[in-house]
Amino acid sequence: MKNKTVGGLVAAFPNSGPRTRKSRDSQFERIVGNSAGLETVLKQVERVGPTHSTVLIQGETGTGKELIAQAVHNISPRCNRRFVKINCAAIPIDLLESELFGHERGAFTGAVAQRAGRFEVAHQGTLFLDEVGDIPLALQPKLLRVLQEQEFERLGSDQTYKVDVRIIAATHRNLAEMAARNELRSDLYYRLNVFPILVPPLRERREDIRQLVLHFVAVFARRMGKHIELIPEPTMNAFITYHWPGNVRELQNLIERAVIESDNGVLSNPLSTLHANTKPAIASRNTLRDREAALILETLRATGGIIGGPQGAAVLLGLKRTTLVYKMKRLGIFRPQQRPIGEFDEGSELMI
């Protein structure tokens, strides 16, 4: 997408498309940006991709870890084989073993037919274990065995299956700290941490935000049949200076909202609503306590009041759910069912 600044406006031409990694390597065509942090990540991808080594991708929620995993697969010797994905945090614990390793008919209630697991499906290809830090301790020895020996048994069977699978794992958690707390087997951590890649949060690669905005505007304008010609420079500056607790995923969602709300070919500023909600609360108070409360409140509003789970405020803030709940109680921020959103008591702390 070609763009230029005209009278305080950024002119956008959706038909030409933004400059992406495609100019460098077609395998990176979905990765947008040229910041130093992103360049470091892609150099690591280029180094490890042609091997068969296990890769551990770490970074906050919404930073694009799955895109990096796909890029590793795309330049690997297995690129013509399957790239199989599983989100370990999205599957109930009692079903995760079956999803990974498969089961025989009658292995458990509801197992009405034999089923191959993701390891079998990914044979000679790549298996992407997203949110690998959420795999329960009871299942970790079986995962460690298949990583080391490339063999396993289906649930309800004593037959051993051999597979040839490359593992790419991703997590927003600090696995080293989890291992120190005995929440993750240390031998599994070392086996996963063969080649670590750390994806920086969006606030540390602000040079990429302009390109990302133009890219997502083009995508959603085309999808919705809209023609966005101008992005006001104040709107673009708001995107660049915002702290993005939800990273690229949050940016993508807000751009989609902006395109929906845009009229007359000019992109609206969806951040103005967020800022309007937080400014009155912090205008007269600027202590560290108040800034912390404002950040928590803004993040809760961005997640619709959801505290836990992979898309919750605790993850976006890099906190444990219990830690966030403790901070909310200490700061006087109430749960959504206790108070309506945006309601304040006279002289009280921020509330949600």
Rank of each mutant, 00 (worst) to 15 (best):
I282D: 05
S186W: 07
P50D: 10
A313I: 03
G133K: 04
N80D: 14
I197R: 11
T109F: 09
G308N: 15
L288N: 12
N277A: 13
V194D: 03
M328R: 02
P18S: 13
G37F: 08
A138W: 00
I168T: 00
E207M: 01
G125L: 13
L139G: 01
V10M: 02
K226T: 14
R222Y: 14
G305Q: 04
R21L: 15
R321H: 06
N74Y: 00
R47P: 06
A258M: 11
H73F: 10
D134Q: 08
I260V: 15
A258G: 08
G225M: 03
K279E: 08
L42A: 09
E39V: 14
A179R: 01
G309P: 10
R105A: 13
G309R: 03
L144Q: 06
K162S: 08
E60A: 15
Q211G: 12
F220I: 11
K65M: 06
W244I: 04
G246T: 07
E153Q: 09
G347H: 03
N174M: 07
H123C: 00
I260H: 07
A294C: 08
E343I: 01
I260Y: 07
L129M: 05
G342Q: 02
G110M: 01
P280T: 05
H215M: 06
T278F: 06
L188N: 15
R185F: 07
N80S: 04
V259Y: 11
M236R: 08
T5L: 11
L198D: 14
L144W: 14
E292Q: 13
E46V: 10
P270T: 04
E207R: 12
E298W: 05
P50N: 00
R223F: 13
A238E: 13
A12E: 12
L184R: 04
Q44W: 07
D94T: 14
S272T: 12
A111T: 05
L67C: 05
L331W: 02
V165L: 02
D25A: 07
T5A: 06
D187R: 07
L184A: 07
A90Y: 07
E151N: 06
A107H: 03
R185A: 12
E229M: 03
V213I: 11
R78H: 12
R291T: 00
T63S: 15
V259D: 01
N15C: 09
